[in-house]
C-alpha cells in the first residue's frame, strides 16, 4: 500500500510538468525542449535559496518565476528572432545547463535540519501522519490546485486565444491578435509549471543534481499521449485530468517494472512493454473500427 502511495505521489508532482508539456505540445503544437532545462532550473533556484535560509513556501513562486523567464527566452528567440521552434528550445535548454551549474553547482543537497514544504510547521495540521502520507496529500493538493487554475485559465478569453493559436492561427490573426505573443505566453506558462515541478521534486528529494532534467521532455510527452489516448473517448474528461492520470500511470508503470525483479539491464525494455500495453489498451477498439 505504501508503495502505491509513494508512487502516486511521484505522479502528482510530475503532473505539473505534464500540464506544461500539454500546453506546448498539444495546445500550441510546439515541440518545446526548454523543459529539460527549466525543470532543473526550478530545482536549482529552490536548492540555492533554501540552503541560504529561505522559507520553503516562498521558493514555489520563485521557481514559477524562474521557469517563466526560461519560457520567455525560448518564446522571444522563436518569435522575435525567427529561430525554428525545436532549435529555440534547444538553445535555451543548452544555456540553462550552464546557468543551473552557476546557481547550484553540479549538485546541492538540502540538509534534514532545513524544513521543506513537506515538513514545515503548517504540515502539523495533518496530524501524526507519516511523511509518506504527508507528501502524498501535499503533492495531491498542489497538483489539483494547479489543474483547477489551468482549467479556469483555459476558459478565459486569453486561454481561448491560446487554444485557437494551436488549432488555427489565421483565426487569431483575423481577430487582430498577435499570435506571436500568444505563443510566448503559452511557453511562459508551460515552463513556469515545469520549474514548479522541479522545485517540488527538489524539496522531496532534498537535492538538486545538474542531470535531473535529462529526459523530462520525453516523460512529459509520454504522459500527455498516454493520458489523452486513454481518455480520448470520454469527452466529459478534461484534457488536464487525462494528463494528470497519464502522469500517475507512467510512474506506476515504472514502479511495476522495478517490482517485477527483472535483471537490471532489462528494466527499460519492461517499461517500454508496459507503456505499449497501456497505449494498446487505450486504442484497441478505435483501431479495430478503422479497419472494419
Amino acid at each position: 500500500m505504501e508503495l502505491l502511495i509513494s508512487t502516486m505521489m511521484q505522479g502528482f508532482i510530475y503532473a505539473l510538468l505534464s500540464y506544461g508539456v500539454y500546453i506546448t505540445y498539444k495546445i500550441l503544437d510546439f515541440p518545446d525542449l526548454t523543459v529539460d532545462g527549466s525543470f532543473p532550473l526550478g530545482a536549482a533556484v529552490t536548492a540555492y535559496f533554501m540552503v541560504n535560509g529561505m522559507n520553503p513556501y516562498l521558493t514555489l513562486p520563485l521557481a514559477l518565476l524562474a521557469g517563466a523567464v526560461a519560457g520567455l527566452a525560448t518564446g522571444l528567440i522563436h518569435v522575435k528572432l525567427g529561430v525554428r521552434d525545436l532549435l529555440a528550445g534547444i538553445i535555451t535548454m543548452t544555456a540553462l545547463f550552464s546557468i543551473n551549474l552557476q546557481v547550484a553547482d553540479s549538485n546541492l543537497a538540502i540538509e534534514r535540519s532545513i524544513d521543506t514544504i513537506f515538513t514545515a510547521a503548517p504540515t502539523a495540521v495533518l496530524g501524526d501522519l507519516s511523511l509518506t502520507y504527508k507528501k502524498f496529500i501535499i503533492s495531491l493538493i498542489l497538483a489539483l490546485v494547479c489543474k483547477l487554475i489551468l482549467d479556469w485559465y483555459l476558459q478565459t478569453k486569453s486561454g481561448l486565444l491560446l487554444r485557437a493559436t494551436g488549432d488555427n492561427d489565421t483565426l487569431v490573426t483575423s481577430l487582430a491578435k498577435n499570435k506571436g505573443s500568444v505563443k510566448i505566453l503559452g511557453l511562459v506558462i508551460a515552463n513556469a509549471l515545469a520549474a514548479l515541478a522541479g522545485c517540488i521534486v527538489c524539496q522531496e528529494q532534498r537535492a538538486f543534481t545538474s542531470t535531473m532534467g535529462t529526459g523530462q521532455v520525453v516523460f512529459g510527452l509520454a504522459t500527455v499521449i498516454i493520458g489523452t489516448t486513454l481518455f480520448r473517448r470520454l469527452s466529459f474528461v478534461k484534457a488536464t485530468t487525462a494528463v494528470f492520470f497519464g502522469s500517475i500511470l507512467y510512474k506506476i508503470c515504472i514502479q511495476l517494472a522495478i517490482s517485477m525483479g527483472l535483471p537490471a539491464n532489462l528494466l527499460k525494455l519492461a517499461m517500454a512493454v508496459l507503456f505499449l500495453l497501456v497505449l494498446a489498451a487505450g486504442s484497441w477498439k478505435g483501431g479495430a473500427k478503422k479497419h472494419a
Partner: peptide, 11 residues
C-alpha cells in the same frame, strides 16, 4: 536514470 533512481529508493 535519475527518475528511476528515485523510484527504486522509494520502493
Amino acid at each position: 536514470d535519475d527518475n528511476l533512481n528515485v523510484q527504486i529508493a522509494q520502493s
